[in-house]
Simulated assay, not measured.
Amino acid sequence: MSDSTALPGAFAEIADDFHALSGRDRLQLLLDFSNDLPALPERYADHPELLEPVPECQSPIFLITEVQGTGREATARLFFSAPPEAPTTRGFASILAEALDGRTVGEVLDTPESVTGALGLAEVVSPLRLNGMAGMLVRIKRQLAEKSAP
């Protein structure tokens, strides 16, 4: 049973999808997410030095955010680079992109760090990998807070 009521809307839906499945099927859904990670826009694909690494991840992953507007009502945009040979990491990035990209900065900043543990993946991926997803969220929130400040 999931406790998705405390999660932001998009995360609650994703958590419900994971909790509706058994362990092996949860892992498959995570792999499905990895296939859905949007490609980097050319402005970043051609300039990987602009992206921030996430050292908590076992695989090389990089991210960058953009803010359209100012303050908490600005729109947050998220972009990730993760290699295809790192499907777990790509899956986590894709979940964050689906749940948070296009939301307001305030919604993203208010997202509790506990969302990474609320997906029911602890039984199919290592705590170290879950820590990587949490590291992505921390960096996203920090970048958005800096970029949305008036």
Rank of each mutant, 00 (worst) to 15 (best):
S4C: 06
L7N: 06
P8D: 04
G9Y: 11
A10I: 07
F11S: 00
A12V: 14
I14P: 08
D16V: 12
D16C: 07
S22R: 12
G23Y: 03
D25I: 05
D25V: 07
R26M: 00
L27M: 13
L27T: 09
L27P: 07
L30P: 07
L30F: 04
D32Y: 08
F33V: 00
L37C: 09
L37Q: 10
P38W: 06
P38V: 01
P41C: 04
R43W: 01
R43G: 00
A45L: 07
E52W: 08
P55C: 05
P55Q: 06
E56V: 09
C57T: 05
Q58H: 11
Q58I: 09
S59N: 00
I61S: 01
F62T: 13
E66K: 10
Q68S: 14
G69V: 01
T70H: 13
T70V: 13
G71T: 02
R72D: 03
E73T: 14
T75N: 00
A76M: 07
L78R: 04
F80V: 08
S81V: 02
A82P: 08
A82D: 00
P83T: 06
P84R: 08
E85Y: 03
A86F: 09
A86R: 08
P87E: 08
T89G: 06
T89K: 04
F92N: 04
F92T: 03
F92W: 11
A93E: 09
S94I: 08
S94G: 08
I95Q: 01
I95W: 04
L96T: 06
L96S: 09
A97Y: 09
A97Q: 14
A99D: 00
D101K: 09
G102T: 10
V105R: 12
G106F: 07
E107D: 14
D110Y: 12
P112L: 02
P112A: 03
S114N: 06
S114E: 11
V115D: 04
T116S: 08
G117D: 05
A118F: 10
A118G: 14
L119P: 02
L119E: 02
G120Q: 03
G120N: 06
L121K: 02
A122T: 03
E123V: 02
V125T: 07
P127Y: 01
L130R: 14
N131A: 15
A134Y: 07
A134T: 12
A134I: 04
M136R: 07
M136H: 11
L137C: 12
V138W: 14
R139P: 05
R139V: 09
I140V: 15
K141Y: 04
Q143D: 09
Q143C: 10
Q143M: 12
Q143F: 10
L144E: 13
A145G: 13
E146D: 14
E146N: 15
P150G: 08
